[in-house]
Design a protein around this nucleic acid. Structure first.
Lengths: 128, 128
DNA sequence: CCGCATCCTTCAAGATACTG
DNA sequence: CAGTATCTTGAAGGATGCGG
């Protein structure tokens, strides 16, 4: 315990690094981060490759997402000095680690989707 | 495999139930869901109790968050016919399961916060 | 005490056009 | 090919006042 402003108003989840937790949650929640990381699972990909594979991402969002992932050290950017230009993005070990927890989230969602659907139907029945 | 529109453009993460995955990711990313669930960990809580404990949540957001969690079946709402009114919210087993993955996210964030901070510092150095 | 309804602000993300 | 630079918008979230 290295004495970081331990304002624990919130169970144990926000013990320390409340800001980091918030940031990670935001990343997970934003529209493209998880999908981009997922598509780097099987190896390096080029900018245009990602753009083709991701359903309807704009250049702007792809660039922003990649930049952020790069700054956080989840991916590396490699530009080859060629004409025409070629840039590849690759998961770092940290990125693969992130992909791990993201995957567990996705698996949880899949595992419980039926149950949640039932619950929602039930709720709307009760309303009537 | 029960034949759900398997549009897999996105690695394996979006195989089926792409919508559910998206929804879960959104929930995780929104501002209060995870915190509310976290604060129900140690037992039932009242509306006003949650409001006191959560740092700066508005009534509106608390109500919306609780309602959504209720519809999805992650929490139950119990109103006691008393004066003054008393309402308790409790995690369901499904909710506890959700808390499990949320906790693993938080732990990942804590475990790698230092590394990510270093990466960001490095990135801003390289920029100069 | 426990909410609902309304208005308002802010910001993530899309559309579009242009550059090295 | 791999971005950057603006403009715009939709929805999330905050503030506030009222109702059962």
């Amino acid at each position: 315990m290295t004495s970081v402003t331990t304002r624990d108003a919130c169970g144990e989840l926000e013990m320390a690094n409340g800001d980091f937790v918030r940031q990670l949650l935001d990343r997970v929640g934003d529209k493209w981060t998880v999908l981009v990381v997922a598509n780097l699972k099987q190896g390096p990909r080029r900018y245009s490759g990602l753009q083709q594979i991701l359903p309807g991402i704009s250049q702007r969002m792809l660039t922003l997402t990649l930049r952020q992932l790069g700054q956080d050290g989840l991916i590396t950017r490699t530009a080859y000095g060629e004409v025409p230009p070629r840039v590849e993005y690759t998961l770092t070990p940290l990125g693969q680690s992130f992909l791990g927890i993201a995957t567990s989230l996705v698996e949880w969602a899949s595992a419980h989707s039926a149950e949640i659907t039932r619950n929602r139907a039930q709720a709307s029945d009760d309303r009537d």
